[in-house]
């Protein structure tokens, strides 16, 4: 182990290590945090021990035979013995078959439970796009983290804006593809142990930032605590109650703009779209933007408006990789975005 420690990257911020794998002691499966986790784990351990038994049997016999019957001299006569034994062969056909039927049934039985959400679920609408999560709670509040409280069955109703994604919460044993063009559903009911934070991954390959498309699940103690958080984190005054650019920043953070547009420096910073700081500079200086079809346009309010509404109409040169989805901003929101971009002028 020391060898590996020496090779390690600079010390890791413990905050980055998700709970569930933070324990120093080795655990094969993540901790069970839902009422349904044992449905996955019990057959897992059954299959595990069956496998260990057969593995030891096969490899043990193999090693034993290799040693016991090793050929000491090339002149030895070939081995002798039966060329077949039908009862024996039927036996090792039927026994694995029976074990397989047990595994199948156990797995199916659990699967039915996992696939059937109870009727008293708290529903969360999940919208994914490359490479961000959006959770829409009852009442319409949106956030990029999944929050719930102990003991509450939660149903995720999921859809994707672009490509396949997959919700994966290892501690909850939840995994379900999110398919564009249709809804898919997943559910879980947390136990008392689940209090705190958990990892949530995208498990279906979705391109560049697939591995950063993760967020956390936060389990509160009570519904009251959850609602308190919900109010604090997601209720915000409407655009009328704040300066336009402040509203614009809210949108930048919440609508997924942040995943492709840098708002700190003029370079792309590894993101796919043009930096908004650069855009702001062009906007205030009346600069031009060149497009892949060799045309160009002055960066003004109309251009930004068009880029939001018809992102694929003209692709800025150098940003061919970008793939901005259409969006649902109304005119006030667009005003706010433009106001926010102007604020970013260096």
């Amino acid at each position: 182990m020391n060898l590996f420690n020496l090779l390690q990257a600079p010390p890791v911020d413990l905050q980055d290590i998700p709970p569930g794998v933070r324990e120093t002691s080795f655990s094969w499966l993540p901790p069970q945090m839902t009422t349904t986790a044992h449905i996955v784990d019990s057959p897992f351990w059954f299959v595990f021990w069956v496998c260990v038994f057969f593995f030891v049997l096969i490899v043990g016999l193999m090693m034993y035979f290799v040693i016991k019957y090793r050929r000491r001299d090339e002149s030895e006569p070939p081995g002798e013995g039966a060329t077949h034994n039908t009862p024996l062969e039927v036996a090792w056909t039927v026994i694995p078959l029976l074990l397989a039927v047990v595994m199948f049934y156990w797995g199916l039985d659990g699967y039915v439970a996992l696939a059937t959400p109870p009727s008293n679920c708290y529903e969360v609408n999940v919208t994914t796009q490359k490479w961000s999560w959006n959770f829409r709670y009852e009442g319409g509040a949106e956030h990029d983290e999944l929050h719930t409280w102990v003991g509450q069955p939660v149903k995720l109703i999921m859809r994707s804006q672009d490509v396949l994604h997959c919700v994966d919460i290892p501690d909850f044993r939840v995994k379900m593809d999110i398919v564009p063009g249709r809804y898919t559903v997943a559910w879980f009911e947390t136990t008392q142990d689940a209090l705190g934070e958990h990892r949530l991954y995208c498990a279906e390959y979705c391109g560049q930032d697939h591995s950063s498309m993760k967020t956390k699940v936060v389990v509160h103690q009570t519904r009251e605590e959850f609602e308190e958080w919900l109010v604090e984190a997601t209720t915000y005054p409407g655009p009328a109650d704040m300066p336009l650019h402040v509203w614009g920043k809210q949108l930048y953070l919440r609508k997924g703009c942040a995943s492709c547009h840098n708002n700190e420096t003029e370079d792309q910073d590894g993101k796919q779209g043009p930096s908004w700081v650069e855009t702001a500079k062009l906007l205030t200086e009346g600069g031009m933007r060149e497009f892949t079809d060799d045309t160009s346009a002055k960066v003004d309010e109309n251009y930004i408006n068009e880029s939001i509404m018809l992102p694929k109409k003209r692709i800025a040169k150098g940003y061919e990789k970008g793939n901005m989805p259409g969006n649902t901003l109304n005119s006030i929101d667009r005003d706010a975005i433009i106001a926010y971009i102007k604020m970013l002028r260096p």
Binding site: D162, P180, M309, L310, P311, K312, N323, P325, G326, N327, T328
Partner: peptide
């Protein structure tokens, strides 16, 4: 068209 679904 998906890409334009929200705009056209």
């Amino acid at each position: 068209d998906y890409g334009k679904a929200f705009s056209t």
